[in-house]
Every structure is written in C-alpha cells, then in structure tokens.
C-alpha cells in the first residue's frame, strides 16, 4: 500500500481571518508538508496544503473533516491526489 499526496484547498470565512494563525492551525490539525497561498479576489486568499496520507479507506475524508473543523475555515476540499 502506497502513500497519496493530496492537495487541499482551504477557504477562509472572510478576508479578515488571520492567515498566519490559520496556517498554524492547519499544520496542527493534519501532517502538512507544504502550504501555499492562492489569492482569489476581493481580499480572499485560499490556502493550498499538501498532505501525505495512506492509500486506504477513509483517509481523504479524515483530512477534509479535520480541516473543516478549524475556526475561520469556510471550506476545505481536496482538489488533487496522486500516489507518491
């Protein structure tokens, strides 16, 4: 069984959400390898986090659920996945 690199797109609840604090919360919630910012518009900036999970049942859901629970997160959604 291999490991899968997933990329999760995280949207803040508003442009006012403290981005550095959000990044720290994301890192605390899941084993993140890399976080990048993707500016959208109107002050909104999406975070894209790369996370490595096992290629097994429930793994992608657990990551999305853990991130959705964070204060200040509007949505967290896996946009890409590939075996590493």
């Amino acid at each position: 069984m291999g490991n899968v690199a997933i990329i999760v797109k995280i949207m803040p609840e508003s442009p006012e959400v403290d981005r550095e604090a959000l990044k720290a919360a994301v890192r605390a919630a899941v084993p993140v390898d890399d976080i990048q910012e993707e500016p959208i518009g109107f002050g909104l900036v999406a975070l894209k986090a790369a996370v490595v999970v096992p290629d097994s049942a429930g793994a992608p859901d657990e990551v999305e659920a853990a991130l959705q629970k964070i204060d200040g997160v509007a949505s967290a959604e896996i946009v890409e996945s590939t075996l590493v």
Binding site: I6, K9, D55, A57, V79, E80, S81
Partner: peptide, 20 residues
C-alpha cells in the same frame, strides 16, 4: 504531469469533483 492514481476507491470522489 503524471497522476499515479490512488488505488483506494475512497479517492474516487476527489477525482470526479477535483480540479485537474
């Protein structure tokens, strides 16, 4: 760019609704 598709079916949803 190569996507080496995960084997587990729980990743299928993300392939259907995902970006790339």
């Amino acid at each position: 760019t190569v996507v080496d598709c995960p084997g587990h079916r729980d990743f299928v949803k993300n392939m259907i609704t995902g970006a790339s």
